[in-house]
Nucleic acid binder design. Structure first.
Lengths: 339, 339
DNA sequence: GCCGGCGCCCAAAACGTTTTGGAAGACAAT
DNA sequence: ATTGTCTTCCAAAACGTTTTGGGCGCCGGC
């Protein structure tokens, strides 16, 4: 491996000058700088990241920990998120470290290791919970982080970027009401997740706006997977008075609900309406295609990284809380007539 | 941030002793070691990763570069793969670095940076191509890597772990033949991908085994996405003599094909049979559920990391080439009678 | 009483950068 | 001739570890 001294030696320069030439300082002659750059290229010199980190006290990396519940998980949301995080980080010459940990002790250790060994300069949080110890932990240490999705500690005091789940589901309810539905079910997620609270609130507000009462039995809990949606859908459709429309808290859940409906011999879009949330690609190719609230995960991930890196480099506090509005995409799952 | 000197100072020991105590050397008294460990815990000491890397000349990290073609991509395969890589790496105290790059110059730069700046100790390759410059590049530099999927340079000389695509598709063809199909289509991927070659070969062998001829028009190229499968399906089904069964090179492709069939008014599983490959969760929840060849991506990812880390630490060359057999899962998409 | 071996500890060198605080020379102004 | 100002370069000190090559007592065997 060629080091900076090799370059310096070849040119009969000091390593100081080589370092400064490559870093673009203006106290090195233009001609010298060119020679240095040429030599570095010839020798294939790339600075040792470890040495640089040690000296600069910066990891030039950000971290993201996948919250995996089961070992075999595959949520398209995260693939897109990671691609966005990685691309934006790379464009600013940062690396992205990824780990996965089931919520609990293992997770806590993972965060601690990264923070205390200064392995990363900042962290992206996803799937935030209402009372999120991760946010508190990082904030207490004044460690830079950006949450994808809101936290509610004690208000939205942490930098975050998210999708307006409340407004989104309200829109969805309004859409269903407009199509004549009065009994609308909701398949949610565990209560501690922030976006469950938000989206459920949107459901409640949406019903209220249409002067519809809310009945307990129509709100059931899934686990954000197709399988969870499937079971929740079975449960809802087996009610004495089943709903005529069901909203899944995310697209995967809705897709599971559709399967449950099919198995009961119902035609989705005619006998029962189903809608999701997120706008994953799968939703466009399901049978029937799924009505959903779309939002640009990839772009939001990039924005989150931009916010984070601004924090890391201590730039003036730009906008630190972003809430984007999702967009309704109407497809056949909420009415075949609609196509 | 507390450093090793803080610990040493507190205990009136040298940093050497602290270092060796924590690293488990046997030349430190048991009682001393305990005091060191306790003090380290109390002070919240975690070694600086950068300093350690610099000294040990090891990054204690492995890298993976997502081959992303479009910016917005979401392939469930990669989410599962990354989870597996991350978990196994973490269990051996390694970090996982993830980047994403479109094949081409950008990709090449990404690999070079990581290798030359010794940012990672080893690399996992996925979506290998027949003549894969990445494999050649890394092998030339004697840089440790493991390919997920075979390479064909010049034979399978590189360490890799993969799924037997040839046998898998052969099984699929046999299954379809058994169900009475004579005209079987195949929606593949770009030619340079290894697993396209393997799986296509399986298709050819499968037909030969059933004494069926192969007709050019039944083999079309997709791009591994639902959208690509959709277009390829339209093409196949619009033929004067359309196939009665179609194999998608992966599940996403097959799901796109099913959508194309539905749009032509065909009932998948009755009018036309469709089968996929990979066993993603989505395949179990599609309409109809998709017949597929299943393989344990998550576990294979973990095995790949184990191989890689063995290579990195220069352990005796254990088994370095693994080919696992996928398992046929028959679902309604290849015959409603089957359920 | 001497020697070898063992158990425990440590000083100092290294790892490859970046940064600090000048130094040397050229030139201009006084 | 002196002083000051630029421009261009550099030696040396960090950064926080790990590792090398011992040192110092103590004990047992001769």
């Amino acid at each position: 491996m060629t080091t900076i001294r090799d370059v310096a030696h070849k040119l009969h320069l000091s390593i100081t000058t080589v370092s400064r030439a490559l870093d673009g300082y203006d106290d090195v002659a233009a001609e010298t700088r060119e020679r240095v750059i040429a030599a570095a290229r010839d020798l294939g010199y790339v600075p040792s990241r470890a040495a640089r980190q040690l000296r600069r006290k910066r990891a030039e990396a950000i971290g993201f920990i996948l919250p995996t519940w089961q070992p075999r998980f595959s949520d398209p949301f995260f693939a897109e998120l990671i691609a966005g995080l990685g691309d934006e980080a790379a464009s600013q010459h940062f690396d992205l470290l990824v780990a996965s940990a089931a919520p609990g002790l293992e997770e806590k250790n993972a965060y601690q290791r990264w923070v205390q060994s200064r392995r990363v300069d900042g962290i992206i949080l996803a799937r935030t919970r209402l009372d999120d110890w991760r946010a508190r932990f990082l904030a207490d240490l004044h460690f830079p982080f950006v949450a994808y999705g809101r936290t509610r500690l004690p208000e939205d005091i942490y930098p975050h970027i998210g999708v307006d789940g409340l407004a989104g589901v309200r829109t969805l309810v309004a859409h269903l009401v407009e199509r004549g539905h009065q009994r609308i079910g909701f398949v949610g997620a565990p209560d501690d997740l922030t976006f469950q609270a938000d989206r459920l609130a949107g459901y409640v507000e949406g019903l209220a706006a249409a002067s519809l009462g809310i009945s307990e039995e129509l709100v059931v809990e899934g686990n954000l997977t197709r399988e969870g949606g499937y079971r929740a859908g079975q449960q809802l459709l087996a009610l004495p008075q089943p709903p005529s429309a069901i909203i899944g808290i995310n697209d995967l859940t809705a897709i599971g609900v559709m399967r449950a409906a099919r198995e009961r011999g119902l035609v989705v879009g005619r006998d029962v309406a189903v809608a999701g949330f997120d706008g994953v690609e799968e939703a466009a190719h399901s049978d029937p295609p799924l009505t959903t609230m779309n939002h640009p995960t990839y772009d939001l991930a990039r924005q989150a990284v931009r916010m984070l890196l601004a924090l890391v480099s201590g730039e003036p506090p730009v906008v630190t809380r972003i809430l984007v509005q999702p967009e309704l995409i109407v497809r056949a799952s909420t009415g075949l007539t609609g196509e």
